[in-house]
Design a protein around this nucleic acid. Structure first.
Lengths: 105, 105
DNA sequence: CTTAAACGTAAGCCATGACTTACGAAGAAA
DNA sequence: TTTCTTCGTAAGTCATGGCTTACGTTTAAG
């Protein structure tokens, strides 16, 4: 899997609203599946499925805690996404600058 | 529409792969609908529909150019997304730091 | 061993939406 | 006006996937 495919997979994994909400909640701190589901309008299995997708995309990690399972965001994935966006903003904003300088056709 | 709803709408608008590809191409510089569709594996009306969604989310702007129509990314939306992510990274990474310091339960 | 708690997985339903072709509108050129 | 180009919209098809309930698995507790 190339770097771009990594970014692509992670960005696509964050597409659905519910899944992004789960990720944002995990960004505030680790949590179990039940605690996550308790604060959301979907069932617990739905949260489990979203976590599975987030894990497959390398966005979160999990760890057994007795009968519960603690999920956390993977800081490396966060840093990777941040770097990608930083470069993206640069491209977009510099293109905008050029369009202002170059004028219209 | 609140600020969070704005971010939410824009993030959701960038969910589909094809639409995100269109946005990334526009980030490199303004383009017409036909030129965009020529470099993609979907039909021109499909590109038009994606552009409509991107425009509704405030991510792009359009401008008549004779019979063609020139689309560009809105730098304000880009800056807004960048600010949101910057704050998000901070939250996620500081939470990770805390999890390292605090240790396990 | 039995019971209970927390979770993952399977199967299935169903709405969302991405895409297509066909058509209409708007502007430039002759 | 007629014609050609470029584009947006309408209508319809079809796969994707998000969600549910039901069930199996693992671990702790009694």
């Amino acid at each position: 899997m190339t770097y771009e495919e990594n970014i692509e997979a992670r960005f696509q994994a964050l597409g659905p609203t519910t899944r992004r909400a789960i990720f944002e909640r995990l960004a505030a701190g680790p949590s179990s599946v039940g605690d996550l589901a308790a604060g959301m309008p979907v069932s617990r299995p739905a949260v489990s499925q979203h976590l599975k997708a987030l894990k497959a995309a390398g966005l979160v990690t999990d760890e057994r805690r007795g009968t519960t399972r603690l999920y956390s965001v993977d800081p490396r994935a966060v840093a990777e996404l941040r770097d990608y966006f930083d470069r993206f903003w640069d491209i977009a904003l510099s293109a905008y600058q050029r369009s202002l300088e170059g004028g219209d056709a």
